[in-house]
Each structure stands twice: as C-alpha cells, then as structure tokens.
C-alpha cells in the first residue's frame, strides 16, 4: 500500500521497464526510502511517514514488553514479566559494571536508548519493514545526543579538570602534547563511529538480504539456494540486531564513564 500510493512515479516507471526487459534488477536500497504514508511526494518535517509508523511500532513494542508485560507485578514473574525484568537487570548491571554505581541515576536515559535501538533493530527484520536505525540521520542524532550530554556532563561535574581526560599522566612528558592531540581527535570522532557502526550494520544486512531475495526471484527452479541463504542471513541479522543494540548501549556507558571519572 505504501509503495503503491506513495512511491514516486519515476520509481514505478523504472520498475516496469525493468520487468518488461526481463533483466535482473534488484533494488536493495528501496527499502530505506522515507515515504509519506498518506499520499503526496514531499517529506516535510511533520509529514507522517513510514519513519513515523515504525517508530510508533517501536514505542508500542517497548510498551507491550515493559508496561503490559510487567503489569502483574508478580513476585513469581510470568514469562513476559521475566523478560521485562531481564532487560531491566541487563541494562542496570551494564551501567553498574561499566560506568559505576554512581551512574545508575542515568539509568532511565540509557534504558531509553537501549530499548529504542533494540526494538528498532528487531522490528526492522520483519519483512517489508522500515528500519529506522539504518538511517544515519537517526543514529547520528542518538550518537550526538550521547556525545553532547557526556561532554557537557563532564564539564559540569569536573569543571576544567575534565580536560585532564586528554592529558595522559602515565606517558613521558614529551609525548603528552602529541597524545593529547590524538586523544582529542579520537574523542571527537566518537559520535561518528558510534552512529555509523549502527546504521552501517543495519543497512548492510538488510541490503544483502534484499539482494539474495532478488536472486531467488530470478533463479527460478534453483530458488531454494538463495532462500536458504536468506534464512541463514536472517539468523545472523537477528544476532547483529541484538549485538548492535548492546554495543551502542555499552559504548554510551563507556563514554559516560569518562564524564564521571575522567582520570584514568
């Protein structure tokens, strides 16, 4: 429905031409297109798009697990409640272990990040889904939010001594300015790696899945080979989706640790 109504005419025409010519045309990147849900070609800031839909579904999934799943408040948890408790304890322990006990006051923020990335990644694996975390615009905002909050927090908590994070006391004095430069550059590159890692992993896996699926349509009788490949790839993608959510969250904890305890 989405592509039928919202797809730009040029796109439709192109597909028709490709089908007519009988050639193998796989468009692995089409799944990442942002389209208005209710007609129109322009994507304004407030336009309701597939981004809106899948982010709303992410909220719904998180609410279903964390709110509906735990509504029993049972002493002996039900299945859904124990999964919700597992997610809670997992992130809580991660903050405690990586950042320190004094960082648990940031638990709701980090939990929000983890839950969003985790469910956006998982929901992106649903066939025909739109993966919000495969977009650099989304992951860059997440990473920049972490970067800016951590930097501001570092200066607010430690004052100017936060800069000692870049001054490696254990190195020889002559090397310290060079190391400081390297440390500053690596610190400023953090949001780039933080965001591109997640978006890249999501995009690559989904694009490859789409390419294999396209082969299945083109190969005819031998369709089962790429179908099996897609099945195997999906298992891998599920792993990647979970691991990337984990990596994004644990890196956030590591960065937060620098703000709270800048001295190595």
């Amino acid at each position: 429905m989405k592509s039928r109504r919202a797809g730009p005419p040029v796109f439709e025409g192109k597909t028709d031409v490709a089908e007519a010519s009988g050639g193998l045309v796989i468009r692995p990147m089409d799944q990442f297109e942002v389209r208005p849900l209710f007609g129109g070609d322009t994507v304004g800031i407030f336009t309701i798009t597939n981004v809106t839909l899948w982010m709303a579904l992410t909220i719904a999934a998180v609410t279903l697990l964390m709110v509906v799943g735990s509504r029993g408040r049972a002493l002996v948890p039900t299945r859904s409640q124990s999964v919700a408790e597992l997610a809670y304890s997992f992130v809580y322990k991660m903050i405690e272990d990586v950042t320190g006990r004094d960082a648990v006051r940031f638990f709701p923020y980090i939990m929000t990040l983890f839950m969003f990335v985790f469910f956006a990644n998982i929901l992106g694996l649903v066939p025909f889904a739109f993966t919000t975390t495969s977009h650099i615009a989304v992951t860059a905002v997440l990473a920049l939010a972490v970067f800016i909050s951590v930097t501001v927090l570092g200066f607010v908590i430690n004052g100017a001594s936060f800069l000692r994070l870049f001054w490696v006391d254990s190195a020889p004095l002559a090397l310290r300015p060079v190391l400081a430069l390297i440390e500053v550059i690596s610190y400023c590159v953090r949001p780039v790696s933080h965001s591109i890692r997640l978006a890249g992993a999501m995009m690559a896996g989904h694009a490859v899945a789409k390419v294999f699926a396209g082969f299945a349509a083109a190969l005819g009788a031998a369709f089962f080979v790429p179908v099996l490949a897609v099945a195997a790839l999906y298992a891998l993608e599920l792993l990647v989706a979970v691991i990337q959510a984990y990596v994004f969250t644990i890196l956030t904890c590591v960065y937060l640790k620098d703000a709270l305890h800048p001295h190595h």
């Binding site: 304004g44 982010m55 998180v62 923020y109 929000t112 977009h135």
Partner: peptide, 24 residues
Amino acid sequence: TFPNQIFWLVVTLVVLYLILSRVA
C-alpha cells in the same frame, strides 16, 4: 528527509523516556 526523521525520532525518544521512567 532528515528534518522529518529527526523530528519523529525526538518525539519517539521523549515518549519512550516518559513511558519508561514514569511507568515501566
């Protein structure tokens, strides 16, 4: 499409934060 994505992302994060920190 960036303004659109960023707008909805911020809305989503705020809603998620409120749901998680107030209820869940």
